[in-house]
Amino acid sequence: MRKPLVMGNWKLNGSKEMAKALVSGLKQNLAGVKGCDVSIAPPVMYLDEVNGLLAGSNIVLGAQNVDTALSGAFTGDISATMLKEMGAKYIIIGHSERRTYHKESDEFIAKKFAVLKEAGLTPVLCIGETEAENEAGQTQAVCARQIDAVLNTQGAAAFNGAVIAYEPVWAIGTGKSATPAQAQAVHKFIRDHIAKKDESVAKQVIIQYGGSVNDANAAELFTQPDIDGALVGGASLKADAFAVIVKAAEKAKAK
């Protein structure tokens, strides 16, 4: 049985003071959680700071991005080996904000996926369609294309131990969220798509939902059979709200 993963993406938010207060609140609220894996991804500047603060907790450090190079003349970039040395495990790649603002292609994101796997880190591959693509009935085609960038270059086995985060772009930071039924339909499509290559890999891959997940809508989302937790944005900046989401995932998957 798949163990859900709830991951907090802090995006470009935070300070040393904020990190200390937020992690303290999370440790207090999540101390007894065992049925759901938990990770938080602060800005890279605070990775070492947050890793120290997480000591003794069940919360795992994550990061928001990685470069394809391991070293060299790449000013401003961060390598997989650096992230690993900082203690990060779950690394977000392909987030729609990277695809949109930094023009990252499916092929480039697939290279990041490969670099992370080689380093022994866990890729959290974000996929999802825009509002226009959704309205045009292209949701499945877009998700398939973004997954195939990895499947066709690295094979289905690359998804062993990996995470996929389905994040409809129209739901990120907008307050809109896919209904549980809508999200489940896409999650099932994603799992079935991988199953065409390897059914055993498809059964174990964690598929999170992301896009305006909050303490009010999380519980219903997690009742769906193919939704294995969430990638949380704004609500991850509030210890109480994030804890409610984590505990909802734990409760739903325990049934």
Rank of each mutant, 00 (worst) to 15 (best):
V6R: 08
M7H: 03
N9S: 10
K11A: 06
G14T: 11
G14M: 09
G14Y: 07
A19Y: 05
V23I: 15
A31T: 15
V33S: 04
V33W: 02
S39R: 03
I40H: 04
V44A: 14
Y46E: 03
Y46V: 00
D48R: 10
L53C: 10
L54H: 05
A55C: 03
G62Y: 05
T68M: 12
A69F: 15
S71L: 14
G72K: 10
I78A: 08
A80M: 09
A88M: 10
K89N: 13
H102C: 08
H102L: 14
K103R: 14
K103I: 05
E107P: 02
V115T: 13
K117R: 15
A119K: 12
L121F: 08
T122G: 03
P123L: 02
A136W: 06
A141Y: 01
A141G: 01
C143D: 10
R145F: 03
Q146R: 00
I147Q: 00
A149I: 06
V150R: 07
T153S: 11
G155L: 03
A157D: 05
A158E: 02
A162P: 01
A165Y: 07
W170H: 10
W170P: 05
K176M: 14
S177W: 05
P180Y: 03
A181H: 13
F189S: 01
F189K: 02
I194C: 04
A195E: 08
K197Y: 12
Y209L: 09
V213E: 03
A219P: 02
P225A: 15
D228A: 12
A230H: 07
A230R: 08
A230Q: 07
G234S: 11
A235Y: 04
K238T: 15
A241C: 04
V244L: 10
I245R: 05
A248Y: 07
A249E: 07
K251S: 11
K251Q: 12
K253H: 15
K255D: 11
